[in-house]
Each structure stands twice: as structure tokens, then as C-alpha cells.
């Protein structure tokens, strides 16, 4: 069985600009997080989304606020692309009361129900059935909502992926499975975990169309997302999309990265999704550099305000501790 490889269709300039802005917002947000992490303002580990921005963005552009997503600990990019605000995300990263989860969720558990963000997850693969449940609920309530679940190439080996995609296929649920194949699960290279050449092949085992897309190409992701989301919305069931990509930062901040070569990382940096999109925009926009400068300025300003908001937000108190358990 051969997977279908989606080639990019051209997006119009307005859509390209929307996508570019979101990708840049995510990149700058992730960079700011590393700085704040180094300052000792966060607990736990920090898992960067840098290098994978086109995936969350290409999907986010095809989703409504009322649609649902679940994602991984690497999930701020997905949240931003789904409508989350930087200031509330940052406040959560710093464990403050004005964060989306009032400081009780943290980086691995970003949730914003009003934006349909049903949770990042610290357990590899665990968000997958939750998204399938949201899709079940949408189908049951006869809304046209769609659920998208983002997970890694490592997560696709979890039993629960197989349980969930089988049920989604069985009941034609409006859900899209997005496997972000960044070639590593933590420190283990893909070929040491799986025999498949393309992970999307696994969809066919369950009667689900499997599609491979260049995850560093916004236009390719956008079109694959558009087809899969429209199909789900039309009641025609799930799709498995494998987006091939690379995380240019370590698995988490401080990762020694002994499992890969500098050359490999450099080669992928040349395929950076933002660089690629900039090359496209340069062809389309005569005044690209001015446009970029203005955009960067706006994003930096916005981020500075968000960081200040997060730092000034109080830490939760003892009373908050026992709230919301049951």
C-alpha cells in the first residue's frame, strides 16, 4: 500500500502573510521561553517547538475556534495557532495565576477550553483518544466541529494510538491524526523504533487514508490540512497525516544532543520552515524586507508586554491549591 504524498498548492499572498505571522509568533515565543527558562523562572523541562511551526500553523489556519485540538508537551505552537494568547501562555509557563490553568497545569498541560484546546499532555500518546472522544461528542451532538490531535513519531508506537484510530475509523469520526515526524523520540532515532519507511502507512491498517506531507512547507501542510479537515467536517471520517519535519533544538533545553551530528542539524536548518516561507514571500512581495521588519517589531513589542504581564502576575496561593480537584 502506498501513501499519498501531498505536493504544495500555491496559497494567495494574504494567506501566506497570515501563516508567516503565526509562524514567527511561535518562533519568537519559543525563543523567549528559552531565555526565561535560563533565568530559572520555570520548573521542569522545556520542550521547544522550533523548526516545526509550519505544521501547527497550516492546521490552525483550517480550524475554527470551536474545533478541538489535543497536543503534546511541545504544544505552545499548537496553542498559539489555535488562538491562545501569548500573555496567558507565558503566565502559565511561569506558574502564575493569570495563566490559562492558573499556574496549576504548567508547560506540559496547557489547556484553553474556550479556544477548543483540550490539553497538552505529559504522557506520550495520551491526548490521542481524548481528541477522538471530542470528535465522538461532536458527531453525537451533530455539530460540524472537527478534532485534530498532534503527536510525535514516538507516540505512534503507543497502543492507545492504535486503539483510538481504529475506533475513529469504525465510527467515521471527524478527527485528523497529525503525526509530526521529527525523526527522533527523545534521543532515539526513528529507524531504531520502527520498520516503516512512512508512518502514514499505518493508517491503511485501520482503513484510514494515510498522507505524507513536507512538514516544513506551510503551503503543503495547509493543503493537506484543508482536505483532511474538510473531509472530517463533511462526515467522511478520519485521516492520518504524517508531517515530516525536524526539531532544530534539543529534545528539551539542556539536551547534549550526542545522538545526532552538527551537520545533520545544519542541513535541516537550511530547510527551516520560516526561511522557506520567507523565500516565497520575497518572490511575492516587493517590499518584503520592510514588511518583515514591521512584523518583527510588532511581535517583539507584543511579546515584551506578554513577558511583563506574566512576570507581574502573582503566584497562586494556598487557597487555590485545593480548588478544582473534583
Amino acid at each position: 500500500m502506498n501513501v499519498q504524498v501531498k505536493r504544495p498548492n500555491r496559497l494567495n499572498i494574504e494567506s501566506l502573510k497570515v501563516g508567516y505571522e503565526t509562524m514567527l509568533r511561535i518562533r519568537r515565543f519559543e525563543e523567549a521561553c528559552i531565555e526565561l527558562y535560563k533565568q530559572g523562572l520555570m520548573g521542569g523541562s522545556l520542550h521547544s517547538y522550533t523548526g516545526q511551526e509550519a505544521i501547527a500553523t497550516g492546521f490552525g489556519m483550517n480550524l475554527e475556534q470551536t474545533d478541538y485540538i489535543t497536543m503534546t508537551y511541545r504544544g505552545r505552537g499548537h496553542a498559539i495557532a489555535k488562538g491562545a494568547q501569548e500573555k496567558k501562555l507565558l503566565a502559565e509557563m511561569l506558574g502564575r495565576v493569570d495563566g490559562y490553568c492558573h499556574g496549576k497545569g504548567g508547560p506540559m498541560h496547557i489547556t484553553s477550553v474556550e479556544n477548543g484546546i483540550l490539553g497538552a499532555n505529559g504522557i506520550v500518546g495520551a491526548g490521542i483518544p481524548i481528541a477522538v472522544g471530542a470528535a465522538f461528542s461532536a458527531q453525537y451532538r451533530e455539530t460540524s466541529q472537527v478534532a485534530v490531535t498532534y503527536f510525535g513519531d514516538g507516540a505512534i508506537n503507543q497502543g492507545v494510538f492504535h486503539e483510538a484510530i481504529n475506533m475513529a475509523a469504525l465510527w467515521d469520526l471527524p478527527v485528523v491524526f497529525v503525526c509530526e515526524n521529527n525523526l527522533y523520540s527523545e534521543m532515539t532515532p526513528l529507524h531504531e523504533s520502527v520498520k516503516n519507511q512512512n508512518l502514514a502507512e499505518r493508517g491503511f491498517g485501520y482503513g484510514v487514508e494515510g498522507i505524507v506531507v513536507d512538514g516544513n512547507d506551510l503551503e503543503a501542510v495547509y493543503h493537506a490540512a484543508n482536505e483532511a479537515v474538510s473531509k472530517a467536517r463533511a462526515g467522511k471520517g478520519p485521516t492520518l497525516i504524517e508531517a515530516k519535519t525536524y526539531r532544530t533544538e534539543g529534545h528539551m533545553y539542556g539536551d547534549s544532543e550526542t545522538y545526532r551530528t552538527k551537520e545533520e542539524v545544519e542541513a535541516w536548518r537550511k530547510k527551516d520552515p520560516i526561511l522557506q516561507l520567507e523565500a516565497r514571500l520575497e518572490q511575492e512581495l516587493a517590499d518584503f524586507h520592510k514588511y518583515k521588519q514591521e512584523l518583527e517589531g510588532r511581535i517583539a513589542q507584543h511579546l515584551t508586554e506578554a513577558i511583563q504581564f506574566a512576570k507581574e502576575s502573582p503566584e497562586p496561593n494556598e487557597q487555590d491549591l485545593f480548588e478544582g480537584v473534583l
Partner: peptide, 12 residues
């Protein structure tokens, strides 16, 4: 899988 689905359904 179906307990997870129950959760997603309960949240929505």
C-alpha cells in the same frame, strides 16, 4: 482508548 474517549466526550 475508550476511557480516553469518554474523557474527551465529557469535556465537550
Amino acid at each position: 482508548g475508550f476511557i480516553g474517549m469518554g474523557l474527551g466526550a465529557a469535556m465537550t
